[in-house]
Design a protein around this nucleic acid. Sequence first.
DNA 1: AATGAATGAGGATTCATTCAT
DNA 2: GATGAATGAATCCTCATTCAT
Lengths: 201, 201, 201, 201
Amino acid sequence: MPKLGMEPLRRRALVAATIAEIGAVGSLEVTVSNIARRAGVSSALAHHYFGSKDKLFLAAMRAVLTDFGAEVRAALRGVRDPRQRLSAIVRVSFSETSFRPEVIAAWLNFYVHAQNSDETQRLLRLYQARLHTNLMHALRPLAGPRADTIARTTAALIDGLYIRQALRDPAPDARRAVQLVTDYLDDALAASAPLPERTPA
Amino acid sequence: MPKLGMEPLRRRALVAATIAEIGAVGSLEVTVSNIARRAGVSSALAHHYFGSKDKLFLAAMRAVLTDFGAEVRAALRGVRDPRQRLSAIVRVSFSETSFRPEVIAAWLNFYVHAQNSDETQRLLRLYQARLHTNLMHALRPLAGPRADTIARTTAALIDGLYIRQALRDPAPDARRAVQLVTDYLDDALAASAPLPERTPA
Amino acid sequence: MPKLGMEPLRRRALVAATIAEIGAVGSLEVTVSNIARRAGVSSALAHHYFGSKDKLFLAAMRAVLTDFGAEVRAALRGVRDPRQRLSAIVRVSFSETSFRPEVIAAWLNFYVHAQNSDETQRLLRLYQARLHTNLMHALRPLAGPRADTIARTTAALIDGLYIRQALRDPAPDARRAVQLVTDYLDDALAASAPLPERTPA
Amino acid sequence: MPKLGMEPLRRRALVAATIAEIGAVGSLEVTVSNIARRAGVSSALAHHYFGSKDKLFLAAMRAVLTDFGAEVRAALRGVRDPRQRLSAIVRVSFSETSFRPEVIAAWLNFYVHAQNSDETQRLLRLYQARLHTNLMHALRPLAGPRADTIARTTAALIDGLYIRQALRDPAPDARRAVQLVTDYLDDALAASAPLPERTPA
DNA sequence: AATGAATGAGGATTCATTCAT
DNA sequence: GATGAATGAATCCTCATTCAT
């Protein structure tokens, strides 16, 4: 029962199915057929709308990054205090939207995919650059010349906590992840500023 | 012209070729044929010795971890001072053996592979546990109750720095990576200990 | 915004697009979608009007033959002298309408298609029969018993010159083609006329 | 029961099967699977040895041309008289090896394929060039300045007779084809030379 | 010890065709 | 009259794996 205006719906469904499938399988070795089945359509339709498996991956990745970016912007909206902005960034990095097993798995796989896809690489760099910008904006007033180092460390720490979740032993523990990064930031800022103010855990 | 005692040589060559191929291709989507060609043998021989592609992967992974473990042990041998032991661990983590593009790529891919291979998962956990043990051993005298947190943060940070190198933008910068982790440790230990002693960059 | 009386326009457009597409692609491996796009309509419409890809091909072929037939009739109209009728037939065979790369390509492909389509085969035979009739009509007074042989040779020569153009090396050279056939006819008729009487094959 | 040294056998079998299949189907729309089945092997093996469908086509075409070239050389060996050389060329063009329905169909399809394959185009040009050279060699002493025209006409005539056989109405009639070309040559040479010597049919 | 030969299974992709609107 | 939506069927191609030698 074909209807008009299905395209955006199908696209969204296929993108969601792609992320879910990558998450479920745990690698990029997913079949277009399975993704399509998950989205309730034929594999031919996936090709009809996206042209190729690779383009579908790219669309999925863009969706993940777009979602993340939107969440960050929302979380930062109206927050002026640098320390609170930092907290917001960290919190969103491990939010329920992003820090789910399937998204984590997708994320990890996108890093792998970046090794062979310029566009994926570009997207990941874009994400990193944005994160860095956001962190720097908040860190500069707090850490002065050490801002850059702290920003890089924080970003690496976040990625490291993601990759470690990929082992899936315990369910991803967002709380603990946030805590670790927060602790790190406390220490780092304490060491940078004359009058460290420790935030309560 | 088959010779006697070739087995260990072939095995080693195939394992090395596996790592190299994964590194070159940037994903686990490598073919046994290509690995075998790289090792200068037929793909049938790879199966003869390892039984399956998966077993070959596992062997490669074990080799990486074994090498790393050996390097760590060597670096720690004779070093008693906790802070120096910490430095040694960090240094080895970014040593020339491990922090090469191809090994980084292999590493990243093993994390992916772990999603579907219990044995790979077990191996990665083993690596993590050993690293944790080593870190704790050195951190306990320095950071007391905070040792665990710092150890986890350090481990995540190392993994995060690895994954970030996977984007291959600049060649892997081991020096900078070591510096970041060292800085982190300085701050963390400064915050933990009564009398922080900053190590010179 | 569908309009009334569109059918003949659409049909013509689709038929023209079919020939053009076959010519452009150089084989029958054209898609209905591409043909339809070229005609500015949806592929569904092509099916609506023609029922199937094959029927569309047939329609295109009929169009080519009809055009050719009409051109021949026009060229022969009012011409009474046998030698001039011969010339007219040859001229039309390499006229600007027919001897264009795309039509040549289509022609060649119709010969291929005839291998599997009775209807196409029938059409090509019809074309051949008509050409033969026309040639015979003009040749009988000029060559008597040799008319049949000369007619067959002329027809084969024309087809041969077509197929050779399919290699597209130089742009089709109609002038030269006409010249070759004319020369042939001159020789053949010279050998047939007044004195020499050829032995029957 | 795999044996050693199968490669050349398989290659030959696959090439023969390709020609046969194209001949049977009457177009290039044959599947590798069917070709392979005809050769008694799996489609995977066809890819193993030839790399792709297109390469297999090319190999088949080369085989056809090579066979034809060898036959021509054999027929010309030891023949010195120009008129007899001409006859030999014509005879071989319609020999039992070449003028079979399946080879005719393959031939026709190679002309089509040439529209999209540079290599096929190159091969066909090569065939044309060789034929032209052979014809010229024999015609120059007989027709002087008209040799070129006669050679081109003869070549086109041969191709035209081939394409006409593609309609398959009657089984290919080699005798008649040879006769037509011979008659043509007689006329043309009669018109060129002062003292035509008619060869007996 | 080592490999060439061979294949089954599987996956991306294409496309003619159908149908509800 | 016209089309977007949708798919089943096909086809090329790849690859891990097996086996006889």
